[in-house]
Design a protein around this nucleic acid. Structure first.
Lengths: 222, 222
DNA sequence: TAAATTTTTTAGGCTTATCTAAAATATATT
DNA sequence: AATATATTTTAGATAAGCCTAAAAAATTTA
């Protein structure tokens, strides 16, 4: 019953899953090509193969959608990716800006026991170093309720950082520089309408954040 | 200066290294094909490619030999393999008979920092779970002096198990069953000439070992 | 040393995953 | 609705890594 997928196939499945999550609609060939940094013709080829393995539904010119089997596959890969990221940060002392590329490789290691033992070793973490939920053995993930973007908070509200909507090293290093990380508490001191920038108070002082930054920080009210 | 090798290339390099270690001579195409479980014609192809990357010297019909660069590459892969095996046994509680195949995958992950941080996390182990030496950052390995095969010991000598010359799951599970592992102390009680079997005394009692078994257990006198 | 055998290489094919260029289809514009 | 534009698919090529079958070279045997 176990499927034997190539790394490339797994990467496509993951990309389709993530695009589908964003749009709740079939994924177009071009969008997928852009995400995979490849050409549309390559995507068509691959999508046909994955369709034959019943990992997705594909209608010519109409895009593709993961099947239940495809979704399960995606969640397994995401689980591995996020567990490895957690391992790298928690145990091997990597910065949260350094782990993505390594986890991209590690997520393709094939061994259910390895994944589950790693999960146990890390004490069954629910979130990875970027605040993203880690699917459990059965693909279940913790759904967080009242989370919103820092940019959407009202003046004088207090919140705690629980995630980032952008995992790029440059953004993560920017946050490091300003001593913002998961768990950081902050208070909205000012909001400037003309450029949507804001000023927040943290332990380390007052900080000004652009709209680009504040819209990529996920917080929860406290 | 960093070479970008495929997993297959790395596996060939490792196989050549190991065959060369055994024979101290150029590796023949057929021997390599057997080790790689592939056809001689495939080996010829690959060996040509590796030769072009100056990882080995190849003369038609004369076999191949790793260059200094090839040796360094092999040692890096071996280092990774043995560190991961150590991690799996020490941290993730795998049995020593279960780790080989997973380490075969993990050894191809590309990140010098990952390897070095893992090494540090494990506290710079000198030997892996099978007693094989782990090359350090610079490819240096601990050379053990007075080691020999259990089969070669004289009557009434005492020794401690420091390694196995066969890492197959079936052999390792056989040793587990008889409570033999790294560090096990034993005393030679009997040697039978007719089939080269021996009897050894361990903490757990007297045990009879075939020549096949005793010739694959590496020990050190105490 | 000449013949028989074994080893190794070459030649030509296959699959995966990519590409470019051209054709087909869908969408947007007038 | 007809045309222009954008998207998607098809066709054909390439590289890595494997295969089989046949040819070439090396080694063994008589």
């Amino acid at each position: 019953m176990e499927e034997l997928l190539t790394q490339s196939e797994e990467n496509y499945i993951k990309a389709i899953f993530s695009l589908q999550e964003q749009t709740n609609a079939p994924v177009s060939t071009n969008d997928l090509a852009e995400r995979m940094e490849t050409k549309a013709s390559s995507v068509t080829d691959m999508v046909k193969r994955l369709s034959e393995k019943s990992l997705l539904l594909y209608k010519k010119y109409k895009g593709c959608e993961l099947t239940e089997k495809g979704n399960r596959t995606a969640l397994k890969t995401i689980r591995k990716h996020r567990l490895w990221e957690t391992f790298l940060v928690e145990k091997l002392k990597f910065g949260w800006d350094e782990v993505h590329d390594i986890a991209e490789q590690l997520e393709h290691i094939k061994s259910v026991k390895l994944t589950d033992q790693l999960d146990a070793f890390l004490d069954y973490p629910k979130f990875d170093p970027h605040g993203d939920a880690i699917p459990d053995k059965d693909g279940e993930i913790v759904r967080r309720e009242q989370s919103c973007k820092l940019a959407d908070l009202d003046l004088d509200t207090e919140a705690v950082v629980i995630g980032v909507a952008d995992g790029s090293p440059s953004f993560l290093r920017y946050l490091d520089k300003h001593q913002i990380t998961l768990g950081t508490k902050l208070l909205i001191k000012e909001k400037f309408e003309f450029d949507d920038s804001i000023e927040v108070a943290l332990n380390s002082g007052i900080l000004s954040l652009s709209a680009a930054a504040s819209s990529k920080i996920t917080v929860q009210l406290i």
